[in-house]
Amino acid sequence: MPLDSSSYSLAQFSTQAAADGSSYLEMGQTKIICTVNGPQESKRGGGSRDQSNAARIETDISIAGFSGVDRKRHGRGDKRTQEMQHTVSSAFSSTLFTHLFPHSTIAIAIHVLSQDGSLLAACLNAATLALVDAGVPMSDYVVACTTGSTASYASNDEEADPLLDLNGLEEQELPFLTVGTSGGEDKVNVLIMETRVQMGRLEAMISVGLDGCKQIRGILDDIVREHGKKALNSRVN
């Protein structure tokens, strides 16, 4: 299933001067700003130095009150947000070369300005771009997308194709999963599903998801290379 690349038309680099790395990503109506600070010495006070021999990845996701249809404040202790923060941190822990930066922290701050489905996937993609912008060494991009299954048990349409990259309405109606990979489709970093689906349909959904990730990787790669070319040209002139 081809991915509608026009919905990725807006992905920008280095949007904010004050951060080490930053990105702005639109996936349909889901709009996200991500900033990365670090690797830097942990700011956590308390005297004792961070004795770890690898950098810690700290993710902070803030969902703006005006991001949804109704105005809703998401506190810092929100369980869903905390789980997403943990998922993003752990997704990057095996891809970033954290062992190069002992006693330090990489802080990823994600601001969700508008949400319309595929929130976790968009967070991961935006974080990848911001980390690239910050120049944090990594083995490959972490890219993610969602897939949903339209097949219903009653109509017995086993062959119904799974859907790729769901919007907010589709997410409410269909069982869906988020899959995040790095290194083409070789390695799955994230696989999250919070709805029920028949076991038989899972495999098709994952394989469509992996295919989608491959396409998103291409799109992100184009953006990075485009930005690199621009940066090089401005350096030469």
């Binding site: 949007t15 904010q16 001067a17 004050a18 703006a64 009150g65 991001s67 105005r71 300005l113």
Partner: peptide
């Protein structure tokens, strides 16, 4: 380099 976004609902 400081940046702010305001949304009114």
């Amino acid at each position: 380099g400081t940046e702010a976004i305001v949304g009114v609902k």
